[in-house]
Amino acid sequence: KLLSSIEQACDICRLKKLKCSKEKPKCAKCLKNNWECRYSPKTKRSPLTRAHLTEVESRLERLE
């Protein structure tokens, strides 16, 4: 599967780190437990900047 097509777990399953069936409108866990089942939009991760990478590398060197 391509990364862009990976389905996201519902908010509660993601928060509780449960295996989500990803069914809509309610996944199996939410249906069974009568929880409100919501699927928040995916958040875009910002790409690493060179400055951040350099900072992490220098912190790693100090720890070694």
Rank of each mutant, 00 (worst) to 15 (best):
K1C: 09
L3A: 13
L3M: 14
S4G: 15
S4V: 14
S5N: 15
S5I: 14
S5K: 15
S5M: 14
I6Y: 14
I6W: 04
I6D: 08
I6E: 09
I6M: 01
E7G: 14
E7P: 15
A9P: 04
C10F: 01
C10G: 08
C10D: 02
D11T: 01
D11V: 05
D11F: 06
C13D: 09
R14Q: 04
R14T: 04
K16V: 04
K16A: 12
K17C: 09
K17S: 04
L18S: 15
K19H: 08
K19W: 03
C20R: 02
C20S: 02
C20A: 04
S21Y: 09
S21V: 00
K22V: 03
K22S: 01
E23K: 08
E23H: 07
E23R: 04
E23T: 10
K24T: 09
K24Y: 06
P25Q: 04
P25S: 10
K26L: 07
A28P: 00
A28M: 15
A28K: 13
K29E: 03
K29N: 09
K29M: 02
C30T: 04
C30V: 04
C30G: 05
L31Q: 14
L31I: 12
L31C: 13
K32S: 10
K32A: 08
K32V: 05
K32P: 05
N33F: 03
N33K: 14
N33R: 13
N33W: 14
N33C: 06
N34R: 13
N34Q: 09
W35G: 11
W35D: 10
W35Y: 09
W35R: 13
W35I: 10
R38H: 13
R38G: 13
Y39F: 12
S40G: 05
S40K: 09
S40W: 05
P41E: 11
P41L: 05
K42V: 07
K42I: 08
T43M: 14
T43E: 10
T43Y: 13
K44F: 10
K44W: 00
R45S: 00
S46H: 00
S46A: 09
P47V: 02
P47W: 07
P47N: 04
P47D: 08
L48S: 04
T49G: 07
T49P: 10
A51Q: 12
H52D: 03
L53Q: 01
T54K: 11
T54Q: 12
T54F: 01
T54E: 05
T54S: 12
T54V: 08
V56N: 04
V56M: 05
E57F: 10
E57R: 00
E57H: 03
E57M: 05
E57I: 00
R59A: 06
R59W: 00
L60F: 00
L60P: 03
L60T: 04
L60A: 09
E61T: 02
E61R: 14
R62Q: 05
L63R: 11
L63W: 12
L63I: 00
E64F: 06
E64T: 10
E64H: 10
